[in-house]
Simulated assay, not measured.
Amino acid sequence: MDPLSLLLILVLGALIGLALGALGGGGSILTIPILVYILRLDTHTAVTASLVIVGMNALFGMVLHYRAGHVRIKKSLLFGAYGLVASYIGARLSSLLPGPVLLMLFGLLMLVIALMMLRPKKPIQEGRQQSWWMTLLGGLGVGFLTGFLGVGGGFLLVPALVLFLGMTMQDAVGSSLLVIAINSVAGLLGHLNSGPLPWLEIIIFAAAGLIGLLAGTSLTKKIPAQRLSQLFAAFVLVLAIVVLSINIPAVLHYFS
């Protein structure tokens, strides 16, 4: 690994942890492009490595939020349990698709996430409990997304936990990290046949993310989450355009 790549991994890994700590999600959407285009990993290996990195960072971040009293363990375990099987199935389906197709789908997901984060948000009614089947569908959807594309799904989890389980926004940010960790483990089990992993790079990446998590958790007390979300979304939007511009031609060539 050359010094420039190492520096980029440290900076971008910290940025991912920062987003996870401050927003309860979103940062993991950057992991796959970094692993593929900077570390030059095979797409399927990158998805597997992403699940390890995202799961480790989410677990550490959950501990920080739990110490602050903002993790609802029982509700989080319930929501995460719904997504366990879906995450495993998503991982198995992911291994059947060609790398360019996965990256194109990933770029589309990044585009959708960025636009969702940039849109003015309507106030979410806290403390409102939804029916069990809506909670089930929410858990299944987030779990499948985690296993299929190797992302935590925190950008969906935070509003889902507020709407479906009646959590406050602060509790939803912390609790989402526990759900992400659960789904990451299930998704990882579905990717065990993807080959050996670059553990040195994963450890460096995860360590940088832990530093970012500490900073992100502190930022929630100083900078409005809406402002952080907008800045991060702008960065994701640019990266989505780059990923799509590379992989749409590759997919067209693959199927031609």
Rank of each mutant, 00 (worst) to 15 (best):
L137E: 07
S218V: 04
L239C: 05
G55Q: 09
L161C: 08
F164M: 11
R72A: 00
V179K: 01
F255P: 15
S87W: 06
L12V: 10
L30V: 06
P249G: 10
A114H: 02
I180G: 07
I34K: 06
W199P: 02
S176M: 05
G83F: 05
L149Y: 07
G152C: 04
I32A: 13
F235C: 10
I16Y: 10
A215H: 12
P100I: 11
I248R: 03
G187A: 07
I113G: 00
Q129R: 15
L200E: 10
Y82E: 02
L214H: 14
Y66L: 12
D171L: 11
V112M: 07
S50Q: 05
H44M: 09
M167W: 05
L213T: 05
G99P: 12
S95L: 14
G216F: 02
A206C: 06
S175P: 08
V179G: 00
F60H: 09
L6N: 13
L157Q: 13
A46K: 05
I203A: 15
V142G: 04
A46T: 08
S28R: 15
W199K: 01
L78S: 11
N57F: 01
G143K: 07
F235M: 13
V85E: 01
F155R: 03
A160Q: 02
L192H: 12
I73S: 02
L210F: 14
L97M: 15
L136V: 13
S194M: 14
S50V: 06
L213Q: 03
G107P: 11
G150C: 09
I241P: 01
G139V: 07
L4K: 08
V63N: 10
M116S: 12
L192K: 08
R67K: 13
K221F: 06
A208C: 06
I73H: 07
N183G: 12
I180D: 03
V85L: 15
L77S: 07
P123I: 02
L136K: 02
G141Y: 00
L192S: 07
G174N: 06
M116V: 01
G166S: 07
I180W: 04
F144Q: 11
L189T: 14
G187H: 14
V238P: 03
N193W: 12
L78E: 10
A208D: 01
G27T: 11
M104L: 14
P123E: 03
Q170S: 07
L41C: 03
M104E: 04
P100L: 11
Q226Y: 08
L18Q: 08
A86P: 09
A250H: 12
V173F: 12
S94E: 12
K74L: 03
G24K: 00
I223G: 07
L219D: 08
M167S: 05
L111P: 02
G147D: 09
V63T: 10
Q230E: 15
I16E: 05
T146A: 15
